[in-house]
Every structure is written in C-alpha cells, then in structure tokens.
Computed example of a mutant assay.
Amino acid sequence: MSNVVSTAKFQDGLTTENLQALLSKTPFAAFLKPEVIKCENGFAELHVAMRRDLTQHHGFAHGAVIGCIADSACAWAAGSLAGDVVTAAYTLHLLGPGVGEKLVGRGYVVQSGKTIIVARSEVFAVRAGKEHLVAVATATISVIKRPSAGTV
C-alpha cells in the first residue's frame, strides 16, 4: 500500500478548495490543522489555531511550527500557479515569539519559472485581534513534472 497522496488533479494549480481537500488526506496537516483562507494567483494564506502541543518550553509557538507555516505559505502560493510543487530550500528568520490565539501565514510568489519558483512569506501571531510579525522566509520551490500518459 502506497502512502503517496495523489496530486495529479492539481497540475493546473492549487485552489483554496482543492488544497483543503488535499490537506485532509495528509497526516502532518491533520496534526497541524491549518485552515486555508486563500490560495490563488500566486498568493496563499493559512491560519493555525495555537494549542499547547504546538509550543516550546517557554510557551511560545515552536520554531518548527512557525517554519512549517512559512514553508507552506510559500509552497501553496507557488502551487496556485504551477500545480504540484515541493520545497527545495527555505530560509527562515524568527523575529519574535509566537504568542497568541493563532498564527497566520501569508505567502507570495516573487518570480515564477518553468521549473523553479521563488516565494516569500510572513508569519504573524494574532493577540487580541492584532497581528504581530514573528517570522519572514524566502523559499525556492521546485515544480514537479509528471510523465505524460504512455511514457516511462
């Protein structure tokens, strides 16, 4: 039995609806529980409600959670243009503690090529309705090429 979640139907680009459907079949996403707010035209936004199991020893959002949100926002923004993508590399700058009711990630495509897309993202902690910037990231996203039918 394969653990691969097919994304073949997303070759023309991720949308808010089909991305949420894909995440419902992805084990790590089931743990993180991101809410896809928007995924279109080189932009993506996701929200993650803060929970104790997402924190580190000081009670802040764990850096790995913030990194995942930043990476996801970049990849999903790229996927909205290119379909199936994976992250090749990302750089994360943590700017402050992730403390609040939820974390918000917003990703933007900077430049889109045939095989590589460069994106950037920002992650905010929302406290009392106000956004506080906690991280910025840049990412190199690889477009996945699927073989055409009948080729090996």
Rank of each mutant, 00 (worst) to 15 (best):
V143Q: 09
T16M: 07
V36I: 12
G113S: 10
H57W: 13
G113E: 10
V86R: 14
G98F: 01
L103G: 08
V123S: 01
L95C: 02
C68M: 14
T151P: 02
N3V: 05
V118C: 11
G107Q: 01
A149G: 07
A44W: 03
P147K: 11
T91R: 13
I69S: 04
S6L: 08
G83P: 14
V65N: 03
V126R: 07
E131Y: 03
A139N: 06
A139R: 04
H62I: 03
E40P: 04
E45S: 01
D84H: 14
A29S: 15
Q56H: 12
A82Y: 06
T87Y: 08
L94W: 00
A29N: 13
P147S: 10
T138G: 12
A44S: 13
V104H: 03
K33Q: 15
E40A: 09
G42Y: 02
P97S: 01
P27N: 06
V65G: 06
T87R: 11
G83K: 13
A139Q: 05
E101L: 10
Q11H: 11
N41R: 11
G13V: 05
Q56K: 07
K25Y: 09
V143S: 09
V4Q: 11
L81A: 06
E122M: 06
A49Q: 15
R120Q: 15
Q11D: 13
K25C: 14
G105C: 04
A78F: 12
A137Y: 03
T138S: 14
G63R: 01
H57L: 13
V104N: 00
A82M: 15
A21V: 14
A75V: 14
T115V: 08
Q111M: 13
S72N: 10
T16G: 08
K130G: 04
R106C: 04
E40I: 03
V4C: 07
K102W: 01
L95W: 04
R51F: 01
W76M: 14
A77R: 02
K114G: 15
L19Y: 04
R146E: 11
P147F: 00
T151V: 06
G63N: 01
I66H: 02
A135N: 02
S2W: 03
T15S: 14
F43V: 10
M1A: 12
I141Y: 02
Q11I: 12
Q20S: 07
L133K: 11
E101C: 09
A29K: 13
A75F: 11
V48C: 07
F28Y: 08
N41G: 14
F31K: 10
G59P: 02
V118S: 14
F124R: 09
G83W: 10
V99N: 02
T138C: 08
V86W: 09
L14G: 08
A89Q: 15
V136E: 07
T26F: 14
S72W: 02
I144V: 15
P97T: 01
V48P: 03
E17L: 09
G100A: 01
V109M: 04
H93G: 05
T140E: 12
K145D: 10
T115A: 14
N41I: 09
I37N: 00
L54A: 09
D12W: 00
A125F: 01
A64V: 09
A29D: 13
G98C: 03
K145C: 03
S72M: 12
S72Y: 04
L23H: 11
C39W: 00
K33G: 03
G83H: 11
E122Y: 01
M1W: 05
G129E: 10
V85A: 07
G42R: 05
I116C: 08
L32D: 05
V110H: 03
